Amino acid sequence: MITTALLAAALTVGAAPALPQDTQQATFGLTIRGITAGSLRLSGQVVDGRYAVSGALESGGLVGILRRIRYDASAQGRVADGRFVPSSYSERADNNGRTRSAQIDYRAGVPQVKAYDPPRARDEDDVPPSTQGGTVDPLTALYATLRDVPKGQECGRSLRIFDGRRATEIAFAAPRRQNGTTTCNGEFRRVAGYSAREMAEKSVFPFTITYQPAGTMMRVTQVRTDTVYGQARLTRR
């Protein structure tokens, strides 16, 4: 589903804070090894304890010239006890003209992989969805991570993520605050669903998230992380 570079660059989410009822939109530029690689756009809304979010990742710069990649995704669900609980997730990918799509629904918090188009055979490394109760989808994770939050609630705690095939985990260290800026360190960890070669290649990706004041809220302005492609950076535009 969502590419490893995007996951390692931006899937860094913990517990959700108290949520205002508003719509938030954000655009981030993605660079890898200092080279412009694309952009990430998010739009989300929380109303009466329900959330809905859409997002798009598109290649750009030199990467976009060499290879056209675009991912569009949407998710919705509810907020319970300060946590995002997805009810559905869908995505569509276009990789140099080769398109595919996927749909995940949730029943009592357990993901149900409903459709792949084109259909795909199960791989021996795939994680059974029935074992992934309480996980969130990739887009919900991105939204919860990159949205504005009240001061004092910038960093989260460990969270499990499932994308339909792979299980990952996010862990945060204590936040550091200085001169109005908050920095959060953490790790993105591959847990299951990866081949032995992929796990040997890299299983832990350190990251740093930087927040700056935005009115009465704190706003993510940059995410830095290791990826299998080198150092990556998301910068808010």
Rank of each mutant, 00 (worst) to 15 (best):
G60D: 10
V79H: 06
S59A: 06
E58T: 15
A80S: 15
D72K: 01
D94H: 03
R78Q: 10
R100C: 05
Q103T: 10
D94A: 03
D105A: 12
R70Q: 11
I69T: 12
L62R: 12
R83M: 07
D81M: 08
R100G: 14
L66Y: 04
G60C: 03
R83Q: 14
R67A: 14
F84K: 03
A93V: 11
S87N: 08
A75S: 15
A73Y: 06
N95Q: 09
A73Q: 06
R107N: 09
Y71R: 09
G64D: 04
T99W: 08
D105C: 04
Y89E: 04
L62W: 13
A93L: 12
V79Q: 00
Y71I: 15
R70K: 13
D105Q: 07
S74D: 13
A75Y: 01
E91F: 10
G82E: 06
Y106T: 02
I104Q: 01
V85M: 06
L66A: 13
N96T: 03
S74E: 15
R68E: 09
S54L: 01
L66M: 12
S88P: 00
D94Q: 02
F84E: 05
R92N: 13
S101Y: 02
V79Y: 01
N95H: 07
G97N: 01
D105K: 01
T99E: 14
A108T: 01
R67F: 15
G77A: 06
R83Y: 08
A108E: 10
G55A: 04
A80C: 08
L57M: 14
R83D: 15
A102D: 04
D105S: 12
I69K: 09
G64I: 03
A108G: 05
N95C: 05
P86I: 02
I104W: 00
D81G: 08
Q103K: 12
G82L: 05
S87H: 08
A75G: 00
Q76W: 03
V63A: 11
R92D: 14
N95E: 12
D105V: 00
S59T: 12
N96S: 14
A102T: 07
V63S: 00
L62E: 02
G64T: 05
I65S: 13
T99C: 00
I69W: 14
N96D: 15
T99M: 12
L66H: 04
A80V: 13
N95P: 07
Q103E: 13
G64V: 00
N96H: 09
R83C: 06
S59P: 06
L66I: 07
A102G: 13
S101H: 02
Y71A: 14
R68P: 01
A93E: 13
T99S: 09
F84N: 01
Y71N: 12
D81V: 03
Y71G: 11
N96W: 05
G82Y: 07
A102V: 02
